Amino acid sequence: MSELITPQGRYAVAAILFDKDGTLLQFVSLWGSWGECLLERFTKDMKQRGLQIPEEQLPALMGTIHNAQGSITDYDRNGPLAMGTMRDLYAILSWQGYLQGLSWAESMELVHQCRLEADVMLEEKRPVHSLPGLHRFLDECVSAGIPLAVVTADETDAAEKHLQWLGIRHYFSEVIGTDLVDQGKPFPDMVQLACERLAVEPAHTAVIGDTNGDMRMAKAAGVQVAIGITENEDTIALTHILPDADLIVRSYAELSIEVTSL
């Protein structure tokens, strides 16, 4: 048996499940780049059709925070880009095109083309960076024999690819994307499927994530502990962002594994 050691106590765990974006890899480096490309192409193509979405409305579309130059610098941990599926994001943009006067079919086709361009950009640049201390923690988990899995709102194929880019795919026994279940976050389906495949009970499992959707998913599945991870230093903000977390850490430096028995 192994124990997960946290700032607020020790937990005997049979498995650990991780969200992907914002938990394993830095969210803005990947999805900020993708979101900027998607929005830039979308607004450009809308203008070519004589239609325009006010710039001040763009951050609200996907829950992003922009600087004066329009670059995405942060994100709403409980917004569409952080918690939604790809279908959710495409529906949001398609709805904007429809509101501006496009037919629903035209709007969906436009968003599809914008998505393809953003995906090509990601393939070329591969802007992925792991969170500080992640590799050390994953190594400890593997050395202790703790099975690991990823449960992500992303699609499984895309998640597999991002983990490969980051060089950490080999750590995980399972990768569960939202396309493998009936209901994604905050519903328990992904945790339940991951635990079924790992042959462990949710009650003996820890979930680590960066959004309250991760925490609610974990609680709905009945896991032992739901851990929020965020670099935010504002205690009040943390309470607002992750109200359902059992505990919150600011980096993997606050987590470790100890083998208590064989």
Rank of each mutant, 00 (worst) to 15 (best):
L61D: 03
L39A: 05
D244V: 11
P147Q: 05
C37S: 10
E117Y: 14
G63A: 01
T23D: 04
W165I: 11
E55W: 13
W31E: 01
T156N: 05
E106H: 08
E254M: 06
V191D: 05
I208E: 08
E109M: 11
G209W: 07
A226M: 02
I146Q: 00
V120C: 09
R216L: 14
P127D: 10
I53Y: 04
Q69L: 13
S2C: 03
H204T: 15
S103T: 13
R169W: 02
D139Q: 13
M108R: 15
V120T: 15
Q164G: 09
D88F: 03
L24M: 11
G209L: 01
L122E: 10
A220R: 02
L138I: 13
A12V: 14
Q26L: 12
A245E: 11
T260S: 15
L116G: 06
D234T: 09
K185I: 01
V150I: 12
L30F: 11
V200G: 07
I92M: 02
D157I: 03
K20M: 04
L238K: 14
T64S: 03
V28Q: 07
L198H: 08
M121K: 13
A153L: 07
T260I: 15
L131W: 08
V28N: 05
D19V: 06
G63C: 03
A206I: 04
L89V: 11
D210P: 01
R10A: 13
V249I: 15
A253M: 08
Q100K: 12
L24C: 12
E3K: 14
L138S: 07
L138Y: 07
L148P: 01
F18L: 08
G145S: 10
G70W: 05
L61H: 07
H162P: 00
G50M: 06
A253I: 08
T178H: 13
V191M: 10
I72H: 03
Y90H: 14
A199M: 14
Q183N: 14
M46I: 04
I227A: 03
H135A: 09
A218P: 00
E174I: 12
G209M: 02
I16Q: 01
G145A: 00
Q52W: 08
A12I: 15
A237C: 13
T6Q: 09
L138G: 02
D234M: 08
V142S: 14
L81F: 00
T260C: 12
R250I: 10
A91G: 11
Q100G: 07
P147M: 07
L255R: 01
D246Y: 04
F187V: 02
E231P: 03
A253S: 15
C37Y: 00
G70L: 05
D154Y: 04
L255K: 02
I53P: 01
T152D: 09
L122M: 14
G9C: 09
Y98A: 13
G22A: 12
D210K: 10
R49A: 14
W165N: 10
M217E: 09
G167S: 12
S173Q: 15
K20E: 05
E160C: 09
E258Y: 05
S251W: 09
K44C: 11
A220L: 01
W95G: 12
P243L: 04
A237D: 12
W104H: 13
N232V: 15
G50A: 06
L242N: 02
